[in-house]
Amino acid sequence: MSQGHGRGRRRGRPDTRKTIVDAARSRFLEDGYHAVTLRSVAADADVDIALIGYYFGSKKGLFGAALALPANPAELLADLLRSGDHSDFPERAARTVLRAWDDPRTGPELLSLLRRAGVDGSLSVLLREVLEAEVIRPLGALLGGSDAPQRAASFSAIMTGLVTSRYLLRLDPIASMSTEDVVAHITPLLGQALRGPGRTRRPPAATV
Protein backbone atom coordinates (compact mmCIF):
# COMPACT_ATOMS: atom_id res chain seq x y z
CA MET A 1 0.00 0.00 0.00
CA SER A 2 1.42 3.37 -0.94
CA GLN A 3 1.87 5.96 1.74
CA GLY A 4 0.15 9.33 1.33
CA HIS A 5 2.20 12.48 1.25
CA GLY A 6 2.07 14.52 4.43
CA ARG A 7 0.71 18.00 4.40
CA GLY A 8 3.38 20.65 4.06
CA ARG A 9 4.56 23.56 1.98
CA ARG A 10 3.00 23.77 -1.46
CA ARG A 11 5.07 22.25 -4.23
CA GLY A 12 5.09 23.44 -7.83
CA ARG A 13 1.59 23.72 -9.31
CA PRO A 14 0.20 25.72 -12.21
CA ASP A 15 -0.83 28.57 -9.90
CA THR A 16 2.31 28.53 -7.76
CA ARG A 17 4.16 31.21 -9.72
CA LYS A 18 1.23 33.62 -9.51
CA THR A 19 0.85 32.94 -5.79
CA ILE A 20 4.51 33.81 -5.23
CA VAL A 21 4.29 36.95 -7.39
CA ASP A 22 1.21 38.19 -5.52
CA ALA A 23 2.85 37.57 -2.15
CA ALA A 24 6.06 39.28 -3.24
CA ARG A 25 4.25 42.34 -4.60
CA SER A 26 2.44 42.82 -1.29
CA ARG A 27 5.64 42.34 0.69
CA PHE A 28 7.72 44.72 -1.42
CA LEU A 29 5.14 47.50 -1.30
CA GLU A 30 4.53 47.06 2.42
CA ASP A 31 8.06 46.49 3.74
CA GLY A 32 10.34 47.96 1.06
CA TYR A 33 13.07 46.22 -0.90
CA HIS A 34 15.72 45.99 1.83
CA ALA A 35 13.52 44.27 4.42
CA VAL A 36 12.03 41.63 2.15
CA THR A 37 13.69 38.21 2.13
CA LEU A 38 12.98 35.22 -0.06
CA ARG A 39 12.13 33.29 3.08
CA SER A 40 9.46 35.82 4.10
CA VAL A 41 7.88 35.69 0.64
CA ALA A 42 7.95 31.89 0.67
CA ALA A 43 6.20 31.89 4.04
CA ASP A 44 3.50 34.29 2.83
CA ALA A 45 2.95 32.20 -0.31
CA ASP A 46 3.13 28.94 1.67
CA VAL A 47 5.69 27.44 -0.71
CA ASP A 48 9.13 25.93 -0.41
CA ILE A 49 11.79 28.64 -0.73
CA ALA A 50 13.50 26.59 -3.44
CA LEU A 51 10.56 27.30 -5.74
CA ILE A 52 11.36 31.01 -5.68
CA GLY A 53 14.84 30.26 -6.95
CA TYR A 54 13.40 27.91 -9.54
CA TYR A 55 10.91 30.44 -10.92
CA PHE A 56 12.78 33.73 -10.46
CA GLY A 57 16.45 32.98 -9.84
CA SER A 58 17.09 35.74 -7.33
CA LYS A 59 15.57 38.58 -5.34
CA LYS A 60 16.20 40.87 -8.32
CA GLY A 61 14.28 38.52 -10.58
CA LEU A 62 11.45 38.21 -8.09
CA PHE A 63 11.19 42.00 -7.81
CA GLY A 64 11.01 42.37 -11.58
CA ALA A 65 8.22 39.81 -11.78
CA ALA A 66 6.33 41.27 -8.82
CA LEU A 67 6.17 44.70 -10.44
CA ALA A 68 5.79 43.19 -13.92
CA LEU A 69 8.84 45.12 -15.08
CA PRO A 70 9.39 44.71 -18.82
CA ALA A 71 13.03 45.73 -18.26
CA ASN A 72 14.55 45.30 -14.80
CA PRO A 73 17.34 47.87 -14.16
CA ALA A 74 19.05 45.60 -11.64
CA GLU A 75 19.27 42.73 -14.10
CA LEU A 76 20.28 45.02 -16.96
CA LEU A 77 23.20 46.33 -14.91
CA ALA A 78 24.26 42.82 -13.90
CA ASP A 79 24.26 41.77 -17.56
CA LEU A 80 26.28 44.83 -18.56
CA LEU A 81 28.91 44.20 -15.90
CA ARG A 82 29.23 40.53 -16.85
CA SER A 83 29.72 41.17 -20.54
CA GLY A 84 31.98 43.29 -22.68
CA ASP A 85 34.97 45.49 -21.97
CA HIS A 86 34.48 47.71 -18.93
CA SER A 87 36.20 50.55 -20.77
CA ASP A 88 33.09 51.06 -22.92
CA PHE A 89 30.65 50.52 -20.05
CA PRO A 90 29.25 54.10 -20.13
CA GLU A 91 28.31 53.84 -23.80
CA ARG A 92 26.85 50.34 -23.45
CA ALA A 93 24.85 51.45 -20.41
CA ALA A 94 23.45 54.46 -22.27
CA ARG A 95 22.47 52.33 -25.26
CA THR A 96 20.85 49.70 -23.05
CA VAL A 97 18.70 52.24 -21.22
CA LEU A 98 17.68 54.01 -24.42
CA ARG A 99 16.85 50.70 -26.09
CA ALA A 100 14.55 49.68 -23.24
CA TRP A 101 12.74 53.02 -23.12
CA ASP A 102 12.49 53.48 -26.91
CA ASP A 103 11.12 49.98 -27.44
CA PRO A 104 7.35 50.24 -28.17
CA ARG A 105 6.77 47.06 -26.15
CA THR A 106 8.65 47.99 -22.96
CA GLY A 107 8.81 51.79 -23.04
CA PRO A 108 5.12 52.53 -22.31
CA GLU A 109 5.11 50.12 -19.36
CA LEU A 110 8.24 51.68 -17.89
CA LEU A 111 6.76 55.15 -18.33
CA SER A 112 3.55 54.04 -16.61
CA LEU A 113 5.58 52.73 -13.67
CA LEU A 114 7.53 56.00 -13.43
CA ARG A 115 4.32 58.03 -13.42
CA ARG A 116 2.79 55.82 -10.73
CA ALA A 117 5.89 56.27 -8.58
CA GLY A 118 5.32 60.02 -8.72
CA VAL A 119 1.99 59.70 -6.91
CA ASP A 120 2.47 56.49 -4.92
CA GLY A 121 4.80 57.00 -1.97
CA SER A 122 5.27 53.28 -1.28
CA LEU A 123 6.23 52.58 -4.88
CA SER A 124 8.58 55.56 -4.95
CA VAL A 125 10.40 54.33 -1.84
CA LEU A 126 10.56 50.82 -3.25
CA LEU A 127 12.15 51.95 -6.52
CA ARG A 128 14.64 54.11 -4.63
CA GLU A 129 15.69 51.18 -2.46
CA VAL A 130 16.12 48.94 -5.50
CA LEU A 131 18.35 51.49 -7.23
CA GLU A 132 20.43 51.85 -4.07
CA ALA A 133 20.77 48.12 -3.39
CA GLU A 134 21.03 46.70 -6.90
CA VAL A 135 22.54 49.49 -9.00
CA ILE A 136 24.48 52.03 -6.94
CA ARG A 137 26.05 49.64 -4.41
CA PRO A 138 27.23 46.99 -6.91
CA LEU A 139 28.59 49.65 -9.23
CA GLY A 140 30.34 51.40 -6.34
CA ALA A 141 31.88 48.12 -5.21
CA LEU A 142 33.28 47.58 -8.69
CA LEU A 143 34.67 51.10 -8.92
CA GLY A 144 36.47 51.00 -5.58
CA GLY A 145 37.93 53.96 -3.71
CA SER A 146 36.69 56.17 -0.90
CA ASP A 147 34.40 58.16 -3.19
CA ALA A 148 33.05 55.16 -5.12
CA PRO A 149 29.50 55.51 -3.70
CA GLN A 150 29.37 59.14 -4.79
CA ARG A 151 30.62 58.30 -8.28
CA ALA A 152 28.14 55.45 -8.66
CA ALA A 153 25.31 57.68 -7.41
CA SER A 154 26.33 60.42 -9.85
CA PHE A 155 26.21 57.91 -12.70
CA SER A 156 22.72 56.84 -11.60
CA ALA A 157 21.59 60.47 -11.29
CA ILE A 158 22.63 61.22 -14.88
CA MET A 159 20.75 58.17 -16.12
CA THR A 160 17.68 59.11 -14.07
CA GLY A 161 17.82 62.66 -15.40
CA LEU A 162 18.07 61.38 -18.96
CA VAL A 163 15.02 59.15 -18.54
CA THR A 164 12.99 61.87 -16.82
CA SER A 165 13.84 64.54 -19.39
CA ARG A 166 13.45 62.42 -22.51
CA TYR A 167 10.47 60.25 -21.65
CA LEU A 168 8.51 61.76 -18.76
CA LEU A 169 8.84 65.51 -19.34
CA ARG A 170 9.48 65.20 -23.10
CA LEU A 171 11.97 68.06 -22.77
CA ASP A 172 13.37 69.22 -26.10
CA PRO A 173 15.82 68.96 -27.65
CA ILE A 174 16.71 65.82 -25.66
CA ALA A 175 13.29 64.25 -26.36
CA SER A 176 13.60 64.58 -30.13
CA MET A 177 17.29 63.74 -30.49
CA SER A 178 18.24 60.51 -32.21
CA THR A 179 19.62 57.64 -30.18
CA GLU A 180 23.08 58.20 -31.64
CA ASP A 181 23.04 61.90 -30.72
CA VAL A 182 21.94 61.15 -27.16
CA VAL A 183 24.64 58.50 -26.78
CA ALA A 184 27.27 60.88 -28.14
CA HIS A 185 26.32 63.61 -25.67
CA ILE A 186 25.62 61.50 -22.58
CA THR A 187 28.49 58.98 -22.73
CA PRO A 188 31.25 61.48 -21.82
CA LEU A 189 29.18 62.66 -18.84
CA LEU A 190 28.69 59.10 -17.62
CA GLY A 191 32.38 58.36 -18.02
CA GLN A 192 33.36 61.47 -16.07
CA ALA A 193 30.89 60.60 -13.31
CA LEU A 194 32.50 57.18 -12.91
CA ARG A 195 36.02 58.65 -12.85
CA GLY A 196 35.15 61.40 -10.39
CA PRO A 197 35.82 65.15 -10.26
CA GLY A 198 39.04 66.29 -11.87
CA ARG A 199 40.08 62.83 -13.03
CA THR A 200 40.68 62.44 -16.73
CA ARG A 201 42.38 59.06 -16.69
CA ARG A 202 42.37 55.95 -14.57
CA PRO A 203 44.56 52.87 -14.74
CA PRO A 204 43.03 50.25 -17.09
CA ALA A 205 42.44 47.78 -14.25
CA ALA A 206 40.27 50.30 -12.43
CA THR A 207 38.42 51.62 -15.46
CA VAL A 208 34.72 50.97 -15.84
Rank of each mutant, 00 (worst) to 15 (best):
R7H: 12
P188T: 07
R199P: 09
G198W: 00
V125P: 09
L190Y: 06
G144C: 00
P70Q: 07
E109M: 14
S178C: 02
G12A: 15
G4V: 15
D85M: 10
A206M: 15
L142R: 09
K59C: 01
L189K: 08
G121V: 11
V36G: 03
P90M: 00
R128F: 11
G198R: 00
V130Q: 08
M159F: 13
L190M: 08
S178P: 02
G6I: 13
I136C: 06
P73H: 06
R195W: 03
A206H: 15
A23H: 06
G64K: 00
I136S: 08
D48Y: 06
R82H: 12
A50R: 10
L162T: 01
P188K: 04
R27S: 08
Y54D: 13
A157K: 00
T160P: 07
F28L: 10
F155A: 01
A157E: 10
R95T: 06
R9D: 09
D44G: 09
G121D: 10
A153P: 07
P73S: 03
S87H: 08
S112E: 12
M159Y: 12
T179G: 13
D120P: 04
A74I: 08
L62P: 00
P173A: 00
D46F: 15
K59S: 01
L80K: 04
R27Y: 04
V135P: 12
G118E: 07
V21W: 07
G196H: 02
K18P: 15
G145L: 00
L77M: 04
V183P: 05
E129Y: 05
V135L: 12
R7V: 13
V135G: 11
N72W: 04
T207V: 15
A100S: 07
S83E: 13
F155C: 02
A65Y: 09
T164M: 14
R115M: 06
A100G: 03
